[in-house]
Design a protein around this nucleic acid. Structure first.
Lengths: 184, 184
DNA sequence: TTAAAATTTCAGTAATTCCTGAAACTCTGA
DNA sequence: TCAGAGTTTCAGGAATTACTGAAATTTTAA
């Protein structure tokens, strides 16, 4: 439960970045600590390691659970909750993408859909409605694409990413028909 | 310069979402207003439409400029600054991705690289160093992949996204060699 | 070069978010 | 059912962030 300088650096950095990522410093630090800890930690371990109040840690852990970024474990003969960050970093990444989308994108998608449905689109709203429509289409396309990629086996996805811009070598002009068919 | 109910709804929503996106309500609202406005607006138009203070609008516009999300224009015979959101939504999207990456990802990449370089990795840091290494690799891979995609002509990128999970049809096991070669 | 228009800066205040300690609550083994 | 370990809630204070109006600065046309 000692925090080495290397860990310390990582923890402080993720704490700082937290605010840019929509989580607060405490939550960022707790996650960082769990991420670099080989063994599961209980709340008091975290309090001791990071110098935070017990209640703050409790709230932070709750938020991390709502993000599905930590796992709860129990040790035999100890009834305290022990927490870990999942081992598989690709799984972590996937959860992060899903959660951010749920919080940052989906509400806007819903709002756009509803607003465009309901409104009768007067002349003065024509431009606005078109712009909102464009935004809606872009979000739909990119999120459904992400869904598709997330559904691929991890190995395939990594392979695809390593291929990078070269995917298009397989994409000849004649494929655009296939693309349209596949996309519908 | 009147704000219809449709625009109003959009503006208020983007204002609310702003806080989840690392910008404040004011900035979100200003951007939303510009996005649905057919014509360029000056700062006073914005003050009047949104009921904000002049200085707040000034600061908000400055922040939007730092995000490269608004364009500055001038009208003949008027020396005030007029602002618009770019027309091309894919261009907007690209800028957004670039800026978020610059603010949210790059600092962490740098920190990880530096920390892993410098530290001699004692025994007790072995696990932490491995975890940080894994995170570093994941970020490198995904950002360079995004770079690759961003570099594609827009039409190709859209085509690819519409293809969705079906890209893998072109990706036979034998391609993994090509993938490795292409990725290096 | 000047004056007026336009914009930005900045110090102070308002609002929001974060964090804490104390109290309430939950759970489990005896 | 009770005791005590463990956890969560919550009100209030601390810290941060957002917003305003006034003053300073910049810009441009005459």
């Amino acid at each position: 439960m000692n925090v080495t300088p290397l860990k310390q650096r990582f923890i402080l950095h993720l704490g700082e970045m937290g605010s840019r990522w929509g989580i607060n410093r405490t939550v960022g630090q707790i996650y960082a600590l769990l991420y670099v800890s080989e063994n599961a930690l209980n709340a008091d371990d975290i309090v001791q390691a990071l110098g935070l109040s017990r209640s703050n840690v409790s709230m932070g852990l709750k938020e991390l659970q709502s993000w599905r970024l930590v796992q709860l474990q129990h040790q035999p003969g100890d009834r305290r909750d022990y927490f870990t960050a999942p081992e598989d970093i690709w799984a972590i990444f996937r959860v992060l993408v899903e959660e951010r989308r749920k919080r940052e994108v989906d509400p806007t998608l819903t709002m756009l859909r509803d607003a465009l449905m309901e409104a009768p689109t007067s002349v003065e709203d024509q431009y606005a409605a078109r712009r909102m429509q464009e935004m809606h289409e872009l979000i739909e396309l990119s999120t459904s694409w992400i869904d598709d990629l997330q559904a691929l086996p991890q190995k395939t996805a990594v392979q695809l990413m390593k291929l990078g811009g070269n995917v298009t070598k397989f994409l000849k002009p004649s494929d655009s028909a296939k693309a349209r068919k596949a996309g519908s």
